[in-house]
Computed example of a mutant assay.
Amino acid sequence: MSRRDYEDDPNAPAANSLVPAASAVVVDDSGRILLQRRRDNGMWALPGGAMHIGESLPECAMRETREETGFDIEIVGIVGTYSNPRHVFAYDDGEVRQVFSICFLARPAGGQLSVSEESTDVRWFEPEEIDTLPMVPSIRKRVNDWRDGNMPAAR
Rank of each mutant, 00 (worst) to 15 (best):
S2C: 02
R3H: 13
R4V: 12
R4P: 02
R4M: 04
Y6W: 05
E7I: 14
P10G: 04
N11S: 14
N11T: 15
N11I: 06
A12L: 01
P13H: 01
A14K: 02
A15H: 00
S23C: 12
S23E: 07
V27S: 07
V27D: 01
D29N: 08
S30D: 15
I33K: 01
I33M: 11
L35E: 01
Q36M: 11
Q36K: 12
Q36I: 14
Q36C: 10
R37A: 05
R38P: 00
R39P: 06
D40I: 09
G42H: 06
G48D: 00
A50C: 10
H52W: 13
E55P: 07
L57G: 09
P58Q: 05
P58F: 04
E67R: 12
E67C: 08
G70A: 03
E74T: 15
T81I: 15
T81R: 11
T81A: 11
R86Q: 12
Y91E: 11
D92L: 11
D93W: 02
I102F: 09
F104S: 01
R107P: 05
P108W: 04
A109D: 14
G110I: 10
E118V: 08
S119R: 03
V122M: 06
V122E: 00
P127Q: 06
E128V: 11
D131P: 06
T132E: 13
L133P: 10
M135D: 00
V143P: 07
N144D: 15
W146D: 04
W146I: 03
D148L: 13
A153L: 07
R155A: 12
R155W: 09
R155H: 13
